[in-house]
């Protein structure tokens, strides 16, 4: 009987050690291909693209390196919200990463919800201070309870930690300087036109809006050139009345900043080969869009210099 009890105790101890390492030390695990650790490793990032999966699928890192001067990096997490981007920025600055230009994903859907985690990789990547702040936001603004605590500090990323070497290898194949290098095929007009639109949201969340303003403040303080970037959505979504309304609302929050709207670029958002779905670009779409976006950025810089 004693042996059985000891076995339970040993299992518990191993689990507690495992979870402690994950929560307190995971962000120190080296990763040179994507995420916060790879960004910190860069030390100087001339052009940091910070956003959601729209950036992961929409910014072509090779095109960025060819077009822009200096070092480029894509920091993207699924559904990355402004409150989370704020913590990511703070952590980079805490780790003395020098950023010259910051491009923030102006994504309506992640700004129109209460603080919540949509990519557990972010929990892994943040230091303990950042993790606690994100969780505190979830308690304060999203009434997070026991279930969220378990998800956040116990369940998330355990498989990732167990298979860390495998992931490290897979990540290297998939990412370069945070940018997605996997070639993804486009869709067809028939499929895209029949896809149902993402759900309607009430409007831009106050906390997310405040986080965007805080990002603006920090960038001013740290002398970082800030751009808000809208990744082009497929035509049916782009034309949806509620989407246009929310986008205008979001643009209003950062009205005094440089916004590079998708509509300002000559990107064809009816071309099905550019899209995987209504939101995410294909490999071809990614290259075309990045080229157009960065031309606009360079043009904007030249105008400002004049």
């Amino acid at each position: 009987m004693k042996k059985y009890m000891k076995a339970i105790a040993v299992g518990l101890c191993i689990a507690i050690c495992f979870l402690s390492v994950k929560n307190f030390m995971a962000y120190k695990f080296p990763n040179s291909s994507n995420g916060m650790q790879a960004a910190i490793e860069q030390k100087n990032v001339s052009h940091l693209f910070m956003g959601s999966s729209l950036f992961r699928q929409g910014i072509d890192i090779y095109t960025a390196e060819d077009t822009l001067e200096g070092n480029s990096f894509v920091l993207a997490y699924n559904g990355n919200q402004p409150v989370q981007m704020l913590e990511e920025l703070k952590m980079l600055l805490r780790n003395e990463v020098k950023i010259d230009n910051l491009y923030v994903d102006l994504y309506v859907y992640s700004s129109a919800i209460r603080p919540a985690i949509s990519d557990t990789k972010l929990i892994w990547d943040l230091d303990f201070q950042g993790k606690c702040k994100i969780y505190q936001d979830m308690i304060t603004y999203s009434e997070a309870g026991m279930s969220e605590f378990v998800d956040f500090f116990i369940s998330s990323n355990n498989e990732y930690m167990l298979m860390y070497p495998v992931f490290k290898f897979a990540m290297k194949k998939e990412f370069y300087k945070g940018g997605n290098i996997r070639e993804t095929a486009g869709s067809t007009r028939e499929i895209l036109d029949n896809l149902s639109l993402p759900g309607i949201r009430d409007g831009i969340n106050q906390v997310q809006g405040d986080a965007l303003k805080e990002i603006v403040r920090i960038c001013e303080e740290e002398n970082i050139e800030l751009y808000f970037v809208e990744v082009p959505k497929y035509d049916t979504l782009d034309q949806a009345e509620y989407y246009v309304r929310m986008r205008n609302e979001l643009e209003y929050v950062v009205a005094e900043r440089t916004i590079i709207r998708a509509s300002a670029l000559s990107f064809d958002n009816r071309n099905p080969s550019y899209y995987q779905d209504l939101l995410h670009l294909s490999g071809e779409g990614r290259r075309t869009y990045t080229k157009l976006l960065l031309e606009a950025v360079v043009e904007n810089k030249e105008e400002n210099d004049e």
Partner: peptide, 17 residues
């Protein structure tokens, strides 16, 4: 005994609650 310890670890760390 090894199995019990493993199960406890798997429930906590790999379980979906």
């Amino acid at each position: 005994i090894i199995w019990i310890a493993f199960c406890v670890f798997a429930i906590i760390c790999l379980g979906n609650f």
